[in-house]
Design a protein around this nucleic acid. Sequence first.
DNA 1: ACAGAGGGTAGAACGTGTTTCAATTCTACA
DNA 2: TGTAGAATTGAAACACGTTCTACCCTCTGT
Lengths: 201, 201
Amino acid sequence: MTTTTGTEASSAGSAAQRERRKRILDATIALASEGGFDAVQMRTVADDAEVALGTLYRYFPSKIHLLVSALDREFERAERRTAELAVPGDTPHERVMFILGRTTAALQKSPLLTEAMVRAFMFADASVAGEIHQVGTRLITMISRAMTGSPYHSQATEEEAAIVRVISDVWLAALVGWVTGRTTAEDVEKQIDVAVRLLLR
Amino acid sequence: MTTTTGTEASSAGSAAQRERRKRILDATIALASEGGFDAVQMRTVADDAEVALGTLYRYFPSKIHLLVSALDREFERAERRTAELAVPGDTPHERVMFILGRTTAALQKSPLLTEAMVRAFMFADASVAGEIHQVGTRLITMISRAMTGSPYHSQATEEEAAIVRVISDVWLAALVGWVTGRTTAEDVEKQIDVAVRLLLR
DNA sequence: ACAGAGGGTAGAACGTGTTTCAATTCTACA
DNA sequence: TGTAGAATTGAAACACGTTCTACCCTCTGT
């Protein structure tokens, strides 16, 4: 098993390899943005990224790995953009809603991309555990930061951690509902707001 | 579009058709129980149910429809078995945990069947909205009954309904984690317990 | 210089979900 | 009873994720 994996995936390997990896993820995101999950076809991704199909599979062992990795990269970028900023809002409720609201709005601007990534995330099986955990951790970190209001990793209590997990569950469920057309965009916001209000009181 | 669909799916059509539908779902559940999502292959289901592949697709337009319909039938049966019984427990928390705990335990007895159904449920796209909604409604009803403690549909308040939805989100998320090997069986129980405690206080 | 190894490429091949179609059987109704 | 239309069948074909094969570069250690 020589495949790059996990945390240091994007920094491992030669410059050419990092470049290939980037091209693959770029192509993935472009295709997903235009046509959603179904439009991300492995042959097309390989062509667009100018790598052979076999190479694509060497970097990402399945379509699901590929899309979840793309999701992780997007999250990582969003994280980096806002890591050192303090979250505005006077109460935990306000701050959490600010963060989730902004993230949700961003996702709703590219519905097809979101559909592709969310469906991959939900369909992932045990073999994608590493990537899934990575994304889950980022999500938890993001919400925790918003709750405490500090950009630094202040140690959360057991109870706070539990609350954060519940919020992330609700957020994902709402997102799935929206992606599959069962729920409107405003409903997502409202569902989260209700959950956060119930939990942070 | 003559396909049987939605609520009255199992009662519509001739006796022979109901019989075919039943055979198909039986075969689906048998295969899923033995080998999970991947073992439910459309050709095999058709063979086992003794219908042609085309007929299978007339009844269920995709593998996902098929599995979600199977999930719905299982839920419906569970519902019927317990519809008129009062839920034991002195507090909403106890009652909700009783119901979810028992259901979770039942699902954990057939891990592969559960894996197949849960993954189909989470992967479903907009075309499965009807079946998904059906299952979601059953789930909500079940939890509501447990919360109020009455077998009858006492009108829930806005707030109660919101709580129920959050609980069902958490339950599904925990189930997904378990199905994909990210979480142990006890964790599922614990996660739900924490969420219910946070919400019902 | 050279052999070997590892990654890359092109393309065929395989498995399974889905579609299609001609032929047959069933069902409802005049 | 006869017949039109719907449902079912069997089998082939298609699409796309995934795997496999044969070959080519480019390094690296001797």
